[in-house]
Design a protein around this nucleic acid. Sequence first.
DNA 1: CTAATTTATGAACGACTGTTCACAAATAAA
DNA 2: TTTATTTGTGAACAGTCGTTCATAAATTAG
Lengths: 203, 203
Amino acid sequence: MIALSRKERDRKLRRADILKAAEHLFALKGYHKATIRDIAKEAQYATGTVYLHFKDKGDLYLALLEGRIKDLLGLFKEGVSSLQSPRQKIEAFVREGLEFFEKNRDFFQIIASEDVESLSEKRFSVSPVGRQIKDYVVSLVKESQKSGFIDKKYDPFQAGEILISMLKTVSMEWLQKEKNKKMNLEQQQNMILGIFFNGVAAK
Amino acid sequence: MIALSRKERDRKLRRADILKAAEHLFALKGYHKATIRDIAKEAQYATGTVYLHFKDKGDLYLALLEGRIKDLLGLFKEGVSSLQSPRQKIEAFVREGLEFFEKNRDFFQIIASEDVESLSEKRFSVSPVGRQIKDYVVSLVKESQKSGFIDKKYDPFQAGEILISMLKTVSMEWLQKEKNKKMNLEQQQNMILGIFFNGVAAK
DNA sequence: CTAATTTATGAACGACTGTTCACAAATAAA
DNA sequence: TTTATTTGTGAACAGTCGTTCATAAATTAG
């Protein structure tokens, strides 16, 4: 019957409402200070309703992260699919990252803190964000090394982590600035790539 | 009278006991999950005693950070004092940083999360760690630019932040590895400096 | 329309934590 | 030794938050 599918759709909508509110409040207050009550209120439901869709607070948090990571990895792979050279792929990775973070500031705020908080919580023992995105970047670095573009003396894991941390660091500062006094995305992209590939030393 | 000075010394010892326990527990559990009760117990005092030395939990946390930052900045400046070239100063900064983090893992764990958590807490609105250390590094970068060693096209603030984030990122991974399978400090230092100055591109 | 079932509600519960404070112990003064 | 003062103690307090559950509303079935 059709009724069942409408129910399912309604259910997904409610879930999405709650996830959206959760994203906003986790970003604003951090995991510990954001309360289920506040999240429910912002989503315009009663407290208990949240528990109809998520087992507990940790489950809500993980579902939020996992959904967004899926989006982000999708964008990365899509933006890279038509490109050939490893260098272009890394350029695309940085551009897509900056774009996504600019459009999803709440999510950025959350993952910016996620790495570290997860260390102190057994529950999230391995950061799902860190893992998947890092694996992806490492694969790009390895590919670049194979093609001789990135020096083989660097550990691809460390190089990948450094690239990610540069992207995060630059995004952090960038997203805090006023719109007028802000460099544009392309300038940020070029700066990151310039330093990552060639360093800051004067030529 | 001498009695008064002994009292003062005792007071400092108690304060130090509490700070040490606090450092350990904040590192282990994070600011929110570390409780005053646990800290007092680890320091072998009663709960209320903590409040004889610190106004509240936030005051304890800030006192801890400020003390350690003073140590760290002292080390940086000491390690750099005898050096002439800007390049050597930056090299010394990276080495001192790695050394300090290796010897003070608890503190490292805390500052690794401090930047971000502080964003969500009005109380610590401007990270005292971030500010002072960043200012120092920026001054080193500016000096290097004046002497023509670092390309003037890069914003010294951004370049400084990137150097700090590289140091943090590398330290994070480094300090989690087993002692046997770990690169030594000099290798880590050379890797950071190699990428920061010259990038990962093959020559 | 009525009964059965599913879903939403928010007050109540229990656990936890920062902070205080009446009291006790220790120390200094007399 | 006796008294005054400082310092330490941990039970008690007040507030918060995650979670549950009895009840109500809404939806579906008959």
